[in-house]
Amino acid sequence: MDILTEALSSMRTGQPASVRTEGRAPWGLRLPPVAGAGFHVVLYGTCWLVPLEEGAAPIALSPGDVVFLRDGRGHALADRPDTPAVPERPDQFRPSLPIGTVSIGGDGPRTSLLCGNYHLDQARPHPLVRQLPEIVHLQTRHGRHPELSAAVQLLGAELENPRLGSTGIVPALIDSLLLYILRAWLEEQSPAGAAGWAAALGDAAVAPALTAIHEAPSTAWTVESLAGRAGLSRAAFARRFTSLVGEPPMAYLTRWRMTTAARLLRESEAPLTTVAARTGYGSEYAFAKAFKREFGLAPGGYRREARAAAA
């Protein structure tokens, strides 16, 4: 079971949106908050990411750098931290294949970025994503994160010189980039000082329990049965799980069951009895009661709203 893929899939509500940003100094672009998570990839040149919160330090970005903004907060991009940033104007956008381009600035040194956002459900973020820093900054130069670096280089090549197939390749690469970003961040954490999910996914006791929950949410798991798989006492396992995952084992089990149920309701035509059985509930009534307590909507109403929003 690939818990990282499952966690992200549980939050996705649509395909990523992206645009290529071409800036020539002096330039500054103010970007509003987005629903989901934002990202930037520096393809060529250098620039600065300027947080809008008072006292937050600007971040210098170089070729190959990747930035992930966990909650899609507003921010600015500029050739220098003190360059005034202005909102994007419609006349700066140029439709082109495989994605559109925004051009801004004067006639100085050029910077090229891929900018966009992933449509993630921030109302119910998975704990793995919730524990990320607000801004994740990854550098791929000097052999760091070779897979992420390769994805960035492939994106840059397709955007610089679009060819046959680019309109299919670029969206697929952008979609995969999210997994590469989170994998790189998790691997970047020091094994000795890792905490939270960075430690949980490699923990000899917690990781098998998480895998069991994800693989078989319909199983009647108890703290005792999960502790048995981990080779720990009930109390020791519960403390360790709660410390790393951020919530007790049974709370996480319920969360994952409800997350799985919501995906089935959004993405399939499975009847409620089937959804209930696949998420560990003995009856449709018990499932509906638990689902409404978690989401504030009956399963049927949730399915209708999700379908309407996707239409």
Rank of each mutant, 00 (worst) to 15 (best):
residue 157 A to Q: 14
residue 138 L to H: 00
residue 190 S to W: 03
residue 13 T to V: 12
residue 123 A to N: 11
residue 21 T to L: 15
residue 304 R to E: 14
residue 120 L to K: 05
residue 172 A to Y: 00
residue 311 A to N: 14
residue 126 H to D: 11
residue 161 N to A: 14
residue 275 V to M: 06
residue 81 P to K: 05
residue 54 E to K: 14
residue 150 A to S: 13
residue 185 W to P: 03
residue 40 H to D: 15
residue 75 H to Y: 08
residue 77 L to T: 09
residue 150 A to T: 13
residue 90 P to Y: 09
residue 4 L to G: 01
residue 292 K to N: 07
residue 111 T to Q: 05
residue 247 E to A: 13
residue 17 A to H: 14
residue 241 F to D: 01
residue 127 P to A: 03
residue 151 A to L: 12
residue 102 V to Q: 03
residue 121 D to C: 00
residue 41 V to C: 05
residue 98 P to D: 02
residue 262 A to R: 15
residue 108 G to L: 01
residue 225 S to G: 08
residue 276 A to F: 00
residue 137 H to I: 03
residue 260 T to H: 08
residue 136 V to H: 04
residue 173 L to P: 09
residue 281 Y to K: 03
residue 87 P to A: 09
residue 39 F to H: 06
residue 309 A to H: 06
residue 229 R to L: 15
residue 189 Q to W: 02
residue 199 A to W: 00
residue 138 L to T: 04
residue 79 D to H: 10
residue 68 F to E: 05
residue 69 L to T: 13
residue 74 G to T: 09
residue 13 T to L: 13
residue 156 G to M: 08
residue 168 G to V: 14
residue 236 A to Q: 12
residue 286 A to E: 06
residue 311 A to H: 12
residue 310 A to E: 12
residue 53 E to F: 01
residue 58 P to M: 12
residue 145 H to F: 10
residue 165 G to H: 01
residue 289 K to V: 06
residue 100 G to I: 07
residue 96 S to G: 15
residue 214 H to A: 08
residue 83 T to L: 06
residue 278 R to H: 06
residue 183 R to M: 08
residue 135 I to D: 06
residue 161 N to W: 14
residue 154 L to H: 10
residue 122 Q to N: 15
residue 206 V to G: 05
residue 309 A to L: 04
residue 107 D to G: 09
residue 178 L to M: 08
residue 257 R to Y: 07
residue 249 P to K: 01
residue 121 D to K: 01
residue 176 S to A: 15
residue 283 S to N: 02
residue 174 I to E: 11
residue 161 N to R: 15
residue 63 P to H: 10
residue 154 L to G: 09
residue 246 G to K: 09
residue 108 G to Q: 03
residue 214 H to N: 05
residue 229 R to C: 01
residue 25 A to T: 14
residue 49 L to F: 08
residue 249 P to G: 07
residue 47 C to S: 08
residue 170 V to F: 10
residue 3 I to Y: 04
residue 270 A to C: 09
residue 118 Y to E: 08
residue 256 W to E: 09
residue 9 S to M: 11
residue 209 A to C: 03
residue 294 E to Y: 12
residue 184 A to Y: 04
residue 180 Y to G: 11
residue 133 P to T: 02
residue 297 L to H: 12
residue 151 A to N: 10
residue 295 F to G: 02
residue 277 A to E: 06
residue 5 T to V: 13
residue 107 D to S: 15
residue 127 P to L: 07
residue 283 S to C: 04
residue 46 T to R: 15
residue 43 L to H: 08
residue 269 E to S: 13
